[in-house]
Design a protein around this nucleic acid. Structure first.
Lengths: 193, 193
DNA sequence: AGCATTCTGAACCATTCCGTCCAGAATATA
DNA sequence: TATATTCTGGACGGAATGGTTCAGAATGCT
């Protein structure tokens, strides 16, 4: 009865996220966005409301697609420590690829806007909590299976891991030296034993 | 013979740094800057050149004044672990005070501009290296005096500490919950033993 | 007093920004 | 074919941006 939407909303959201992810919120103009989304300005406003609304939507999109990947890793059938180490190593590796040197989207948002932009802050916090939860599961399993020490409860341990991962990604933004970052990974893993 | 400068350049630099520190580079306008510096736009341009030049100068100012404070802490006459723990605790405490919830300036700059702005990136990297150096000294001393384990060389250990500290500050931007952050501090300190 | 310097405020410029709106083309269903 | 919806591109507005320039007041030194 009516003309259907021609572009994939989720795909457009993904592209918008990538631009914000690489350039930050303030440094991204509407032109940058619509160019990447391959959409006219009018369509963008009709579909998402405003630049800021779009921004919030990209954070939720990130949580929906990326953060849940980490949760998924928690159920891989391998020793928990191995899974955690693999997650960290992949993060380090990403920072070495020039096109992927943009860290964690939640991390970037937390630093750039979280304090001043409450709406974004809420979402960032929720995303980090989900990461924490995924690591809680992993640590608990590792402790049950005996390859993670039981000096600490799973939750503080998980917080330590989330924090450490974010620290590594920040360092990577300045250094991009894989060896130096792996130094940090090694000691972090050592802290689990 | 001539009219002397009326304002203190270092003080103006400090105020400019504070604005950038709280709001980021892009989100800070010339008006924000000159208002905080209590200087006219003309004076600002005459003295610092441009917004970007001023920005670079604030990073150097930060290194000159703040980073060297950490280096100074390395020579405090107390067990190295105690000094390190105190540094971390003070950082956590800062994140709890609403007006001080802005993390580490180098950290913020690394995340917001380091990748795209080479000139800023260089300076950020230098600053982080200086932090690393300060921690190397501390760890080495701790190992000599026996309160830090010798499983790892001082340098990787120092990198771990710098990374961990930055991770904590990022988490603080999203959470601001002192207890959660102290969980991370505890485990980090545990990794030294 | 005279001179060199510094400061301010305002005017000004070109650019970019976000946001709104509309005419017209495209497209699926009935 | 008629209708309803969607898309695009461009025009437009108003505001804010970074940056430049200048006249004139202020100030300290000789």
């Amino acid at each position: 009865m009516a003309r259907p939407k021609e572009f994939d909303v989720d795909h457009a959201l993904r592209e918008a996220m990538n631009v914000f992810w690489s350039n930050g919120y303030k440094a991204t103009s509407l032109g940058d966005l619509t160019r990447a989304m391959r959409i006219s300005k009018s369509s963008m406003y009709e579909t998402f409301g405003s630049k800021h609304d779009l921004f919030l939507a990209t954070i939720e999109h990130y949580i929906r697609t990326q953060t849940t990947q980490i949760s998924g890793a928690a159920h891989i059938d391998a020793p928990a420590v191995k899974v955690i180490r693999a997650l960290f190593h992949r993060a380090v590796q990403r920072m070495a690829e020039p096109n992927s040197r943009r860290g964690c989207y939640l991390n970037n948002c937390a630093v750039e806007v979280s304090v001043r932009d409450g709406e974004a802050g809420e979402r960032v916090e929720k995303g980090l909590d989900m990461m924490e939860e995924a690591f809680v599961e992993l640590v608990a399993r590792g402790q049950r299976e005996g390859d993670i020490a039981t000096h600490h409860d799973p939750r503080p341990m998980a917080r330590f891991l989330v924090s450490s991962l974010n620290g590594i990604l920040v360092m990577g933004k300045a250094h991009a030296d894989t060896d130096k970052l792996n130094d940090v990974v090694d000691i972090t893993m050592n802290a689990l034993a």
